[in-house]
Design a binder for these strands. Structure first.
Lengths: 128, 128
DNA sequence: GCGATACTACGAATTGTTTCGTAGGTGTCA
DNA sequence: TGACACCTACGAAACAATTCGTAGTATCGC
């Protein structure tokens, strides 16, 4: 009976989740290979991380084959929202506006992206 | 010679920084009192945190009085931008647009705030 | 069948975070 | 002056995160 929702992933865990979102269900070997393109790490390190992440409920493990196959429990969008919500509470006193302002200021977006955001604003204002 | 920029604050450190941003320069006693309105904590715990944060360069300490006075090294905006930048890299592959979308979706903003964001968009588009 | 290879499990070392008790010094005031 | 309150420094405990070596077991190629 593990009901409680998975905890917020650490930075390292998030890096592994990002590999899994990219690859889809994958073995330790596959994750390790992909992970090492950016970050040199031992095989058993990745294995251990995935084992711990399984205990935490961050990933699910298929043990039907000898090489276990791992996949994320939550979607990338879901975790992104979780992390944004956390940052919102911790650093911005819950003000999404302030966070959005900082995000737009801290990294230039393309005109296309800005237009996309504008479209979302239209939609939100219509709902209100 | 401590040149390197202060590290990303932990959640607890951030909570203390938020108190300092609210109060301005403050003694351990003042920070402790304010902090405890939300989170019950021992006096020496807050003291130790502030000592560690001083070593890390997150806060500056004025020792000219018997009760030392602490203040943040970086502005709230600066740290907010730092944290947004970090989240952007770690969870959003650098796409500010995706982060903004999630922020707006995860917490309803008031029409006034949406208008404010729209104004920022206007400004950014004019620059481009 | 046997040696090489691949895989998981486990334990342990290291490092960082958080909490708080205790000790020692300084000031206050009756 | 002596009791008391307040302040900082320090060390240690408890916990979590990260890394990796070693051991044990299964599988494959010959």
């Amino acid at each position: 009976m593990k009901k409680s929702p998975p905890p917020k992933p650490t930075d390292t865990e998030l890096a592994i989740l990002r590999v899994l979102w990219r690859l889809g269900p994958a073995t330790v070997r596959a994750v390790h290979a992909e992970f090492n393109r950016v970050q040199e790490t031992g095989y058993t390190t990745v294995l251990k991380m995935l084992q711990i992440m399984t205990e935490k409920g961050l990933v699910r493990r298929d043990e039907s084959e000898r090489s276990h196959v791992y996949q994320p429990v939550l979607s990338e969008q879901h975790v992104q929202r979780q992390l944004v919500g956390h940052l919102l509470d911790r650093a911005f006193g819950g003000s999404a506006q302030k966070l959005v302002m900082q995000a737009l200021a801290s990294k230039k977006s393309s005109p296309r992206e800005l237009a996309e955001i504008r479209r979302l604003l239209d939609k939100l204002e219509k709902e209100a």
